[in-house]
Amino acid sequence: MTPADASAGSTPSHRRVRHADGLFVRRTRGALLVLGRGEDPLVLRDISIDLWDALDEGRSVADVADLASEGMGVTSERAIEDLVPFVERLLAEGLLEDCTSLT
């Protein structure tokens, strides 16, 4: 999924994802560490933690982009552009799974 795809209307941005099963996670005040397939855990902070939680609730990428646009004070389109690579990285790391049952 590219940013262009995301805004193309066939709605990869409406794709729903959720945490992959069996994640190794530690949550502390100010940071969320998640170990995926790689050697280094992903360290999420601030609004990234809210986005992670929203994705886990099964909200679509577009919905989460709205949340990000509010949090970061940018347009929804810009938020999607920023969010898609983030989601793609999480998917590649095995930290998120497509959740087709919710689509």
Partner: peptide
């Protein structure tokens, strides 16, 4: 202190993967 704690937690996550 937070940095030190995060470094320790990163080790914990690796070790839990080894344990499983």
């Amino acid at each position: 202190a937070q940095d030190r704690h995060e470094a320790a937690m990163a080790v914990d996550l690796h070790l839990e993967r080894v344990l499983v």
